[in-house]
Design a protein around this nucleic acid. Sequence first.
DNA 1: GTTTGCCCTCACATAGATGTGAAGGTTAGA
DNA 2: TCTAACCTTCACATCTATGTGAGGGCAAAC
Lengths: 116, 116
Amino acid sequence: MRIKELSERADVSPRLLRYYEEQGLLTPGREENGYRAYDESLVVRVGQIRSLLSAGLTTEIIRDVLPCLAEAASSQYPAPDFVNRVRQERDRMAERLDSLTRNLQAIDAYLDAVTR
Amino acid sequence: MRIKELSERADVSPRLLRYYEEQGLLTPGREENGYRAYDESLVVRVGQIRSLLSAGLTTEIIRDVLPCLAEAASSQYPAPDFVNRVRQERDRMAERLDSLTRNLQAIDAYLDAVTR
DNA sequence: GTTTGCCCTCACATAGATGTGAAGGTTAGA
DNA sequence: TCTAACCTTCACATCTATGTGAGGGCAAAC
């Protein structure tokens, strides 16, 4: 499919799709006329990208992490450096998650208190 | 305490403390000479701010949410609009949290698979 | 064959979090 | 009293994720 269709199905602007490509998160093929050609599976992938971005990760981090989300372990033996980088990122995500959880609980407690 | 001390104890730059103040997240008093005067409790508060920022919230949102984190329900009856705003923010946080959780699990699965 | 709508690239604009430096006041110690 | 270390404000710089518009091809429909 072309950029417009993907942009509608994934609900992001064409501009962003080009940006994600520039950042190495997406690598669509090209039609003969130079138009980008996206395949079906990218609708989901764009969703993952958005969700990671909204969780506070940067495109740079997502670039590292995305392969792990794509169909369990694409290549057999990823470089150990890569695995370490991912592990590190994983730990940071876990921290964010903790922090979010704690703050969410605090806010819930507040809402509880105030709503009565 | 003055800005330098807080900046060291909370491990953020003085610049950021001034920025948080500008954003309404911190309201230190002033000494007679115009120097900012922070009190003890702000070490923790700055930590909360950092943690919320790193979880992807903006200063604008944090401004709303911080009062809820400070000593259970400061004022008795907050305006309903305010409560709604907070509730809305709470829901967004819950979404982020879900997304983070899912992605974290996926990455863990990947690391598991690869580490064997 | 011209209009319409989509595509391309390039490039400048903006908002938010943060860094950095200038210009100058205050304070404490040698 | 001079210096070093701190403080102030102001303002410009930087990075990331985005928007927006210009200038120009391609394709389908009228």
